[in-house]
C-alpha cells in the first residue's frame, strides 16, 4: 500500500491549459487567487515568499517560503511550501498538474510531503487515505442528525 501523505484535489476549468498556466505563473495573477508572491519567477530554483493569514489550528505563522521545483509549460508547476518561521523545512511540496480535457483543463492539485512522523502528517495521511470521503460524508450526516459525541 502506498504511503499517502498528501492532500489531493482536482478541478476542471473551462479554459485552455495555456490560460491556466498563465494564472499559475504570473505574479500579478497569483496574487489574485493565491497570495501576492514576493520574488516569484517562472524558473526552477526561483525562491519566493508569500504572506498569508496565520492558520492557528495547524500552527502556521503566516509567511510561506517557497522554491520552484518543477516547471514544465504548460503542464506542471511545483514548489516547496515551508512556514518561513519554522526551524526545519517541512518537506511540503505543492504541485499543479494540467491536463487538457475537452476544451478545458483538468487541474490536479496536490499538497504533498507531510512528514510521516509528525502528528499532522499522520492525521493527514489517515484522513486522506482510501474511503475517507465516504466516512466524512457519513460524519456529515451524523452531524446533521445532531450527533455530538464530544
Amino acid at each position: 500500500m502506498t504511503d499517502r501523505t498528501s492532500i489531493e484535489l482536482d478541478q476542471f476549468y473551462p479554459h485552455a491549459p495555456e490560460l491556466v498556466w498563465r494564472a499559475l505563473t504570473t505574479p500579478e495573477l497569483l496574487a489574485r487567487w493565491l497570495m501576492p508572491p514576493d520574488g516569484f519567477e517562472p524558473r526552477v530554483g526561483a525562491r519566493f515568499t508569500m504572506a498569508a493569514k496565520p492558520i492557528e489550528a495547524v500552527g502556521f505563522s503566516g509567511t510561506v517560503a517557497c522554491e520552484v521545483l518543477e516547471l514544465v509549460e504548460p503542464e506542471l508547476l511545483s514548489f516547496s511550501w515551508d512556514d518561513a518561521a519554522a526551524a526545519q523545512p517541512s518537506g511540503w511540496v505543492v504541485s499543479f498538474a494540467l491536463r487538457p480535457e475537452g476544451r478545458g483543463t483538468r487541474l490536479l492539485f496536490a499538497h504533498r510531503g507531510f512528514d510521516p512522523d509528525s502528528p499532522t502528517a499522520q492525521l493527514s495521511r489517515t484522513i486522506m487515505g482510501g474511503g475517507w470521503r465516504r466516512i466524512l460524508a457519513a460524519l456529515g450526516e451524523a452531524a446533521a442528525d445532531g450527533g455530538n459525541g464530544a
Binding site: 492532500i7 484535489l9 492558520i55 495547524v58 466524512l136 457519513a138 460524519l139 452531524a143
Partner: peptide, 21 residues
C-alpha cells in the same frame, strides 16, 4: 460505524483542504 470521534480529526485537518479548495 460511529463516526463522531472523527469530528475533532476533521476539524484539525480541514483548514488545509478548505484553504486549497
Amino acid at each position: 460505524v460511529h463516526p463522531e470521534p472523527l469530528v475533532g480529526v476533521r476539524d484539525w485537518l480541514s483548514p488545509y483542504e478548505r484553504y486549497w479548495r
